[in-house]
């Protein structure tokens, strides 16, 4: 069994790279396996994500992409190997899980906004009750991020009154309000109408440009080309190939990668 090389980002951004090499990695996954009952969903996952690195995970459905990033904030638990986030190893210890979740934001395919709370309340809930931020400060932060995602005027509406694209932008802002060091995106544009995909991607691109550490599971290959430091291709629960976007798209090595790319890039 070959050990994959664990190198961090080698992208053009020198400053990022300095920072990435000077501090400990944001996420370190070592020899991780996961089973659903007897089904072996994730097999021998080794992945190191440097601070400020942007990773895009692609692959056919059922390949374990979503399961992998859901393991990173312990929405799913793994049975073998290690996952270390910000220097904290994820175990069954609730305290550690809380510690990791405070630092890791997650954006879901179906937004999962809280329908009974206003947009502003959605954004301030966790800062107030988890971080203990005073309400006024939490609201100021919330408004700041709503402006960043360009919908401050919706603050007092309810999620049901917003379009899908707006809801997903609110969901991103909700995660940002916790000032996370890492953001996980689980197919954030898959449930959106085509004309709304761009507004969400724009927000994600600007986040990437600011240096946020990101792991995105997505089928948006244009996004991958533009912002990813590395593209990872998964199939059958394992990492088949990873490379810089340029190399990955122009010169795929593995048969499965080639097949996959030929199917999605017409």
């Amino acid at each position: 069994m070959s050990e994959p090389s664990q190198t961090t980002a080698a992208s053009g951004q020198a400053t990022r790279q300095d920072k990435a090499t000077s501090t400990k990695p944001a996420i370190e996954i070592i020899g991780m396996h996961k089973w659903y009952g007897d089904f072996h969903v994730l097999r021998d996952i080794n992945l190191t994500v440097g601070d400020g690195e942007r990773i895009v995970i692609a692959g056919p459905s059922g390949s374990g992409k979503s399961t992998l990033i859901r393991c990173v904030n312990r929405l799913e638990e793994h049975q073998e190997g290690q996952i270390i986030v910000n220097g904290v190893e994820l175990t069954a210890d609730l305290k550690r899980i809380d510690e990791v979740r405070r630092e890791v934001g997650m954006v879901f395919q179906h937004f999962n906004l809280f329908p009974h709370l206003t947009i502003l309340q959605n954004l301030t809930l966790a800062p107030i009750w988890v971080r203990g931020t005073p309400k006024a400060a939490a609201e100021a932060t919330a408004m700041h991020y709503l402006e960043r995602v360009k919908i401050p005027e919706q603050a007092n509406k309810f999620p049901g009154q917003l379009s899908g694209g707006q809801q997903q932008r609110v969901a991103i802002a909700r995660s940002l309000c916790m000032q996370p060091r890492i953001m996980l995106f689980d197919e954030p544009t898959s449930a959106l109408d085509p004309e709304m995909v761009k507004e969400v991607l724009d927000v994600m691109i600007s986040l990437a440009e600011e240096g946020m550490t990101m792991i995105c599971v997505t089928h948006e290959m244009g996004f991958a080309r533009q912002v990813a430091d590395r593209v990872i291709f998964m199939d059958q629960g394992q990492i088949i190939e990873q490379n810089e976007p340029e190399q990955f798209f122009s010169n795929p090595q593995h048969e499965r990668t080639k097949l996959f790319l030929s199917q999605i890039l017409h």
């Binding site: 904030n73 929405l75 809380d98 979740r101 405070r102 890791v104 934001g105 997650m106 879901f108 179906h110 999962n112 906004l113 809280f114 329908p115 009974h116 809930l125 966790a126 009750w129 988890v130 969901a171 909700r174 995660s175 916790m178 996980l184």
Partner: peptide
């Protein structure tokens, strides 16, 4: 109450008690 609500609350770092009190119960009561 959709399971996604629990997951969203978890990923925001809300503890179980807060999760029930602030997110799940208000929706279930409706």
């Amino acid at each position: 109450v959709n399971h996604g609500q629990t997951e969203a609350a978890q990923s925001l770092g809300l503890k179980e008690g807060d999760r029930l009190r602030l997110v799940i119960v208000p929706q279930a009561m409706r």
